[in-house]
Design a protein around this nucleic acid. Sequence first.
DNA 1: CGGTCACTCGAACAACGATCCGATGGAGGT
DNA 2: ACCTCCATCGGATCGTTGTTCGAGTGACCG
Lengths: 219, 219
Amino acid sequence: MWLRTSSREERGGPPLSRRRIVDEAVALLDAEGADRLTMRRLAERLGTGSTTLYWHVKTKDDVLDLALDAIFAAVPIPEDQEWRAGVTRLIGDWRATLLRHPWSAALLGRPMLGPNVLARSDFLYAALVGAGVTEPHLTAAAFGLSNFVIGSALMQATWLVNADAETRDAARDHMAQQSDRYPALAAHGPLTATDGWDESFERGLNWLLDGIEATVATG
Amino acid sequence: MWLRTSSREERGGPPLSRRRIVDEAVALLDAEGADRLTMRRLAERLGTGSTTLYWHVKTKDDVLDLALDAIFAAVPIPEDQEWRAGVTRLIGDWRATLLRHPWSAALLGRPMLGPNVLARSDFLYAALVGAGVTEPHLTAAAFGLSNFVIGSALMQATWLVNADAETRDAARDHMAQQSDRYPALAAHGPLTATDGWDESFERGLNWLLDGIEATVATG
DNA sequence: CGGTCACTCGAACAACGATCCGATGGAGGT
DNA sequence: ACCTCCATCGGATCGTTGTTCGAGTGACCG
């Protein structure tokens, strides 16, 4: 009896649940990246066998979908704000969350239909409608803002993930070596520098918001 | 001698080369999608052994990087146009190419440093500089436009790839079932419809271009 | 003719996602 | 106290993947 191996202490704390699996998956993704997430490794961190996970979850893709939606719980839904301030905050927090979990960039190519994502998309639509934006500008505004955040986070996360000095230096050398072939790029584009990205993001976001705001003024 | 299996006719035509591998990889990706691309299957289509590919290419990721860059050869670099028309064309063709090869969306999370991508980025920078856009607006403009195309194509390709009626209907049902939880979304957002995307894309692009144009007017 | 060089490929390895089938253990009934 | 049931777990295993190793093959050059 005391030699039993399956006491709750020797396993990973509370009983296994979909919730615990997803939380641990996010932790593992944060720590080691998207390609290091394995059902076996995930199970090991949870103190269970790998096959046990399949009782709570149908496939590995489900884990990824759930993990991707889970991180957006950290994006607060603004309340009682003027529409533009609220949208700016939502989009900014959205981007910050994507960048805090750079592995999420690689997963953006799958349908995002989780409750957290839907709730925040719903807020976005509601805020735009409340601002007086009407079709066909409404769809364009919602899509434009979403696409802008996603693209922005994807590009920046690409360089956050490959942040090893080797890749970075190789890229810089590669560019410098062919600076005659890409003159404008060599003169202005620090492609691997993530310094001005926050400011650039804000600028682009404001261009979009200005355009959206103009449609409600002129109809 | 006549029993020899390695005559050129029994293998795949001309001798193997990096060029042929990449072309066939693009064809395979177009035909079956990103997850069906296997070194073995790719080799089979080329009429060679799977391990032979590793003589011309270091890893599978190299094949993906090369294939991703290869498709942008189909994006013509505009010439002799007013800057806004040229940029609009470039971005539009860029998006069209991404959508013509929907598997590319899943690969956008990797550094794009191929010659085709760099040449077109160089044109974008040059066009903006020629228009009189200066820092810090220049970086923001280039990033904003790039991010917008990438995000837009990524979102739309997500639904092109999962275009099976099953997934689509399931998504629609899932939304309709919880329309009380997401009222604004249910009222306006046909998330799975790709109808108005072209128009929405153009609208968003023009908002960005308007904003960029304004910075050159006011300094 | 001998040798070098570019190129090819079968066998093999480790790791992966996924699944079968059996073991375990606690709750609840009798 | 015993049995039954069912949620929960895991060892063994299957098929597939990316990649390496070393042995080949033929063309070309001296």
